[in-house]
Amino acid sequence: MKIAKRKKSKNILKYQQKGKRFSIFCLLPSFSGVMLFFVIPFIVVIYYSMIDNPINHEFVFFENFISVFNNEAFRLAASNTLKFSGIAVPLAVSLALLLAMMLNSKIPFRSHFRTFFLSPMMVPIASVVLIWQVLFHYNGLANDMLGVFGVHKIDWFKSDYAQIVVVILFLWKNLGYNMILFMAALSSIPKEILEVAEMESAKPWQIFWYIKIRYLSATILFVTIMSLINSFKVFREIFLLTGARPFSSVYMLQHYMNNMFERLDYQRLSAAAIMMSLAMVFIIGIMFLTENYFGRDVEG
């Protein structure tokens, strides 16, 4: 009996070991991919950020970080990026939520509005840029309309107004997607709770603040993070609109990094990228903490 038991447990162990080996084998391709395309490049970036240049490979430790941090172009890019994200992301979240709530209520032509707001997502970026160039060109439609009111022409892309144009472009492109996410989240709020609240004479703003926001907290976090990431990717549109060296008001972090790459300044590029990543981790960490606070009492 003892021998049989021992044999059985030995077989089980053997089977478990086999299973482990097999699962390691199955995980190997994904693991290799993550290592090859994420982890190793990240380590390489850290390495590049600590050498003097890609030719000599002499260690200078944190000198590149200090140099980049003190660089006026980097500071300009960082402040522009933060400013843009600080304006565009809250607007993208709040306007999308507002639109979602509007479309969630029983208004006429609801489905048409939904299509209208979603359609910018389907337009290729090159076409978007072309449209914006025509609209905001010095001799474009926007200035023509201003001229009707006697306002002097504005160089939209080469003045401080450029940020406004980019914010509008960003919102136009991303509102639809955020709106859809919020609409899905709104429809998942248990109707019984809302009915109970109404029966208990809760005011609409109380229902919104104490119930809906709580249930939407996870979606708000997700939408905010996605919008934040997209706000960094707005470089693509700016680059297509204004080139590699735009007016200072729309000179973003990625412009700085792009231009460093062109000039073989890999060390500064890497240092800037690491600083940007750390800032992103910090911001997203705060968002998670906030979400934890607001959503902690939500069911499930």
Partner: peptide
């Protein structure tokens, strides 16, 4: 389309960014 000063200001702005990048 623009005056000399307006064009010069934009030139100044853009080149200043370029110079700052490379210091």
């Amino acid at each position: 389309q623009k005056s000399a000063r307006e064009a010069a200001e934009i030139i100044q702005n853009r080149i200043q960014v370029y110079v700052n990048e490379n210091r």
